[in-house]
């Protein structure tokens, strides 16, 4: 009987041992990105940029050329690579501390310039590598090592919704939020990642895919429970969906109170 190969490691992933904690969803997201790179046939012209954070060693896992950027600067580094070599497929892989805190300026302006790069934004609501400090995405009341009584929104403000924020920019882009805490979510996430990389391959626009992710170690719970926690606490605050497509234009402003229609400045 002939054997059929039905599952194998993507060519875009190296055969190495992972350093990620047991139950961490980085591994799933790496795999989804690698599968998309393989399926689009762009592995040999892809350059990735690793952040500072848990995925700082991403360059060990992807079988593509890679840069390791300083904290938050991956979108600027991506800009430099893409402007030097427009034919390359350039993606950043960034966590929430990296992208939404120290790198907020770089991500907003990279998106606003419409750089034809893809950003994989992994949001696990905490600083992982440094040991569980509060992130700009940490949920209200969520305990972290720098907010031991839980995030106080009067002191730290509310968690930043990156996909929503980036989608307000006028420049055409593809912006979506997905998750990988269930098999169905992961399948959907891959379809969205594929769309994002395809937009880049076709030279259409900037793309950002936020992926809700778990951190069993720093959340202090077993992996299965962490997936449950993500579903119950993160998804309500960070709704999944497509927030912006390159075809979409301006968001229409809501009328001011007591006004008939949108405020005009003519």
């Amino acid at each position: 009987m002939a054997e059929a190969l039905v599952f194998s490691r993507p060519a875009a992933l190296e055969s190495v041992i992972t350093h990620y904690c047991p139950g961490c969803t980085h591994g799933i997201i790496h795999r989804l990105v690698a599968e998309v790179i393989d399926e689009l046939g762009v592995r040999e012209r892809t350059v990735g940029i690793a952040p500072v954070g848990c995925s700082v060693l991403a360059y060990n896992y992807f079988a593509t050329d890679f840069h390791e950027a300083s904290h938050g600067r991956a979108p600027a580094v991506a800009t430099g690579i893409k402007r030097a070599h427009p034919e390359l497929i350039v993606f950043t892989y960034q966590g929430d501390g990296d992208l939404a805190s120290i790198g907020m300026a770089e991500i907003v302006h990279c998106a606003n310039r419409g750089e034809k790069v893809t950003v994989v934004f992994v949001n696990n609501a905490i600083y992982g590598m440094t040991g569980g400090q509060m992130a700009p995405t940490t949920l209200p009341g969520q305990i972290a090592t720098t907010c031991p009584l839980g995030r106080d929104v009067n002191l730290a403000g509310y968690p930043i919704r990156v996909a929503e924020l980036i989608s307000t920019l006028r420049t055409p882009a593809f912006v979506a939020r997905t998750a990988v805490h269930t098999p169905l979510a992961a399948v959907q996430a891959k379809a969205i990642l594929r769309r994002a990389f395809t937009y880049q391959k076709e030279g259409t626009c900037f793309s950002l895919v936020e992926v809700l992710s778990t951190c069993p170690t720093n959340w202090g719970m077993p992996p299965a429970e962490a997936c449950q926690w993500l579903e119950e606490h993160m998804v309500p605050y960070y709704p999944l969906g497509v927030f912006k497509t390159p075809e979409g234009g301006d968001r229409a402003p809501r009328p001011l109170e007591g006004e008939e229609g949108p405020c005009r400045t003519t």
Partner: peptide, 23 residues
Amino acid sequence: TFVQAESEVAASNMLYGAAGSGA
């Protein structure tokens, strides 16, 4: 190509990216 960056931090990191890709 000329890019006006959002800051010197970004400009110099764009340099890091482009230099790393051989330009």
